[in-house]
Design a protein around this nucleic acid. Structure first.
Lengths: 321, 321
DNA sequence: GGCAAGCATAAGGCACCCTTATGGCAGGCG
DNA sequence: CGCCTGCCATAAGGGTGCCTTATGCTTGCC
């Protein structure tokens, strides 16, 4: 209050003390200080104090103290209606926003992840949790919870981020994928068979690593790291029978399970980077966070289990430093 | 807060902390905590504190802290509009009520006083003070400022009331009044002439006292005290030439000044009771109170001066116990 | 006449909130 | 590239506003 006292005539704040307003509204509604105090969880004396405060501010009585009751003065009546309305509005919008916050869930995910993995599964989550309104926001860069209005994020990376809770969704592998028709037509049975197959983006480094892991020379050497978007496009092409795509099978578990995609040959290499569920640790206990967390972790497990075991493959993509 | 802590789950109050709401509204308007603090006369740290408080209550961020600025989250935007509106409404109705309180003036007066003395003069006050809205409320009993919504009152009595500021408007006298025509027609010159004149309510004690004061016997002895209403009726009758009324000439100074009434003979007795301006001493300094006070005291002086000097008459009505 | 209901008032204490002070971060600028 | 500035977060500390308890007063009711 020191600043307010700097000027001799403290410019009267346009707004009355709002705590007193709240008390007045309750008192006006009950026409009874004691009852108002009960509603507000305070004593009758406190109500009396606040009402007096407000009356001093207005400069006139708002209640007439009659023997067994208090009644509003004309001035008090003038105040009570609009104030009650305004406080009701404030309460309403607050409840609405709290409710929205409680139910709306904004998820940030990489475009590819959102399209290929998340959205096909999200429908089921919506069915199981109709009260939660899920919004997916795609972005390319890592999200900062302090700067972006996002509840949780699906990240792709090595893990170990500071300041966030991160739970691994699934480890990533790289394996050649194609349609079952293509595999049959080309008689793909063992890794070396791929050397004569139409590879999609054969210059990508993942192909080289994959072949090298088997002691084979890649048909075309290249050093380009494959972007996730390119990977998704390649898989789309592969799914139309245009060739074999080197991709993360976990991302396409649905297509594999549905028979639209198969492993061209049974060999996968490990990616040190994984997909993670990431969220602010402070919000761990929130219902909606927990709910989504449990669901997506279960989905990730299911997706992993739906794939042939790829254990034993070495981590050759994104080697640690 | 002790009462709120009684129950393990303190039933979440429907309303958010209103002080925080006010701060939030300013911060949202400025999109700048420092500026909002200046507007509210507090420091940036305090703003930050209050915003955090509100965010904790909602359970979500309302502002995104970006390097050089803060911006509202979608949730914050949802809040800002309605809250700003509500606070504006509160401020509006408050200013309106303060203004009304500052300008509206409710005067309590006895019916007779209001009709015969106050209202003819009030028009002039309204002309001189157009910004003040005067309301006259008539009542028969003495007003209690704590119980009735009245700014000031005109009382008739002995004075010396506890707890109120009382200023004497004018002392009261009793004198016989009639039309000048009646006085001429009956050749009323000295008090004894009234013994043959048509007296209105001759049984009233004031007549007896008046005659006794002159050493005369009243034509009809009676002990009834005259009600003010009866007095006014008698004066009305007198003004129509129906007789001579024993009344308080101060109340009819206008009619006397206008020549509609004259003293039937030049003799008055004194009433110990007077008319007083009464108001709560706490409100002495209020502009509208002071304004009306000054005006009505001046009017009372003028009304007294307009009458023939009635000094020297003894106080025989309402003798002190 | 005692009792209950209801509000005002005084005294006292604590919690809240504000201030001061400091640090971090990013952008602008020389 | 380093300094400065604008802006916010955070910690520590203190003052006071507000609430509670206790008491008194008035009135209406049995």
């Amino acid at each position: 209050m020191l600043a307010a006292m700097a000027e001799p005539p403290p410019p009267p704040p346009k707004l009355p003390p709002l705590a007193a307003v709240r008390v007045f509204e309750a008192a006006a509604r009950h026409q009874n200080f004691t009852r108002a105090g009960e509603e507000l969880g305070m004593t009758q004396a406190a109500v009396s104090y606040q009402i007096r405060l407000l009356e001093d501010r207005v400069g006139a009585a708002l209640f007439l103290r009659q023997p067994r009751q208090v009644v509003l003065t004309p001035l008090g009546q003038r105040l009570a209606g609009p104030l009650s309305r305004a406080l009701h509005d404030i309460g309403s919008v607050f409840r609405a926003v709290c409710e929205e916050n409680r139910t709306a869930l904004t998820i940030s995910a990489l475009q590819t992840m959102a399209i290929t993995w998340l959205s096909p599964r999200l429908a089921q989550f919506q069915i199981e949790n109709p009260q939660v309104a899920v919004r997916v926001r795609t972005s390319q860069h890592l999200v900062d919870f302090a700067t972006e209005a996002v509840d949780l994020a699906l990240r792709y990376g090595p893990g170990g981020w500071p300041g966030v809770a991160a739970e691994k969704l699934f480890a990533c592998h790289y394996a050649p994928l194609c349609t079952p028709e293509l595999r049959e037509r080309l008689h793909l049975r063992e890794p070396a068979d791929l050397l004569r197959a139409p590879l999609l983006s054969p210059e990508e480094s993942s192909w080289r690593v994959w072949f090298a892991d088997l002691g084979l020379d890649a048909p075309r050497q290249g050093g380009l790291a494959m972007s996730l978007e390119m990977q998704a496009m390649n898989v789309q092409a592969a799914m139309r029978g245009h060739g074999v795509a080197m991709a993360v099978p976990e991302l396409f578990a649905y297509d594999i399970a549905a028979g639209r995609l198969v492993f061209a040959v049974e060999h996968a290499i490990r990616d040190r980077w994984s997909y993670w569920l990431v969220y602010p640790p402070a919000r761990q206990r929130e219902h909606k966070i927990r709910r989504f967390r449990d669901w997506i972790l279960a989905e990730a497990r299911a997706a992993e289990l739906a794939l042939p075991v790829m254990a034993g493959s070495k981590g050759l993509i994104h080697p640690s430093s």
